[in-house]
Simulated scan of single mutants.
Amino acid sequence: MTVSIVRFGGSNCDRDAARALAHLGIDAEIVWHEDGLPAETTGIVLPGGFSYGDYLRAGAMAAQSPIIDEVTARAADGVPVLGICNGAQIGCESGLTDGVFTTNESARFQCEPVHLRVERADTPWTAAYDEGDVVHIPIAHGEGRYEIDADRLEEIEADDRVLFRYCDADGAVTEEANPNGSAHNVAGVLGERETVAVMMPHPERATLDHVGPTDGQGVLRAFE
């Protein structure tokens, strides 16, 4: 598998993602968005950063890049697509997943380790975990609060499309464990296809054994 990591102006986690995937033995290359997706692309990462300086809304301008049409088409063909942090914002803005990510409840940038509860273990992104597992993966965002209208949120819950929720170390989903005010503590959601996912925490920053926690490896192993 060759994973294409799409770089926009302002992306700054593309190299992190490439390094993490290489650490797991997964072929990956960084692709400038204006160049389009290589024909051999069999997986796609929309990485973190501050595409276009987060002007208008975080991810809104990058979502208008022509490469997103290619990403959407590949996703419809079953190619796995993962949006991380700013990539999650781009994923929502482009319609790959429902909802939006907006300003943290604290109105400040937050960079800290958090706990996530695995809500499903039967997706490509969570197959390495068991349902209910608590994983330790960092966040780094100023606009990470997941918002969606109440009716659509109810549909997503009913369709079991919540991938991760913020929780405490024991797996309890509480208001205190919610770092940004996300609706229902949502930290990651699936698209209409289970091969498409977005998440605000950074699994690529919890992958290298010599750096710290490695709980993010399971997410990236979806590309194997």
Rank of each mutant, 00 (worst) to 15 (best):
P47F: 03
E105R: 11
I84Y: 02
E119L: 14
G10E: 15
G188N: 09
G91L: 00
R15L: 15
D54F: 02
D170E: 15
D160T: 10
Q217V: 10
E224W: 00
G218N: 07
E176C: 12
D16K: 05
C167E: 01
M200S: 12
M61L: 15
M200T: 12
L56W: 12
T103H: 11
M61C: 15
I68L: 14
H23N: 12
P38Y: 05
V135I: 15
H184S: 14
Q64W: 01
G83Q: 08
G144W: 11
G78I: 00
G181Y: 06
P47L: 02
R117F: 02
T214R: 03
D133G: 05
N185T: 12
D27Q: 10
H136G: 03
H210Y: 13
A62N: 09
F223S: 01
G144H: 14
M1E: 05
D35Q: 11
I5A: 04
G216I: 09
G83C: 07
A20R: 10
G87S: 12
V162R: 00
R7D: 08
C167T: 09
R205M: 05
C167Q: 04
S106R: 06
C92K: 00
D14R: 12
P80M: 05
E147F: 07
P213Y: 10
E119F: 08
P138T: 12
Y55W: 10
A128C: 09
G212P: 07
T41S: 07
H33C: 10
P179V: 08
E34M: 04
E204T: 09
R221V: 05
Q217N: 08
D160K: 15
H210R: 07
A60E: 06
P203A: 13
C13F: 13
V186M: 08
V79D: 11
G188P: 03
P38T: 09
E157R: 11
P47W: 02
I139V: 15
A28T: 07
D149C: 03
A76Q: 15
R74Q: 10
G78D: 01
G99T: 09
D168V: 07
V100N: 03
G25Y: 12
D209I: 09
R145S: 05
P179W: 12
V118T: 12
W32E: 11
E192P: 01
I137S: 08
E175K: 04
Q110I: 12
N86I: 10
T214Q: 10
G53I: 13
R108C: 00
R120D: 03
R161E: 13
C13I: 08
W125V: 07
N12M: 14
E112M: 13
N104L: 02
F223G: 00
A63P: 06
E131H: 03
A88M: 11
V196T: 13
A28Q: 08
H115Y: 14
S51Q: 08
G216M: 12
R221H: 10
L24V: 04
E157Y: 05
L208T: 02
D209M: 05
G218Y: 06
S4I: 02
T42D: 02
P80N: 04
N180Y: 02
T42P: 00
D77M: 10
D133T: 04
D209K: 06
H141N: 14
I68N: 00
A127F: 03
T214H: 03
P66W: 04
R152G: 05
N104W: 11
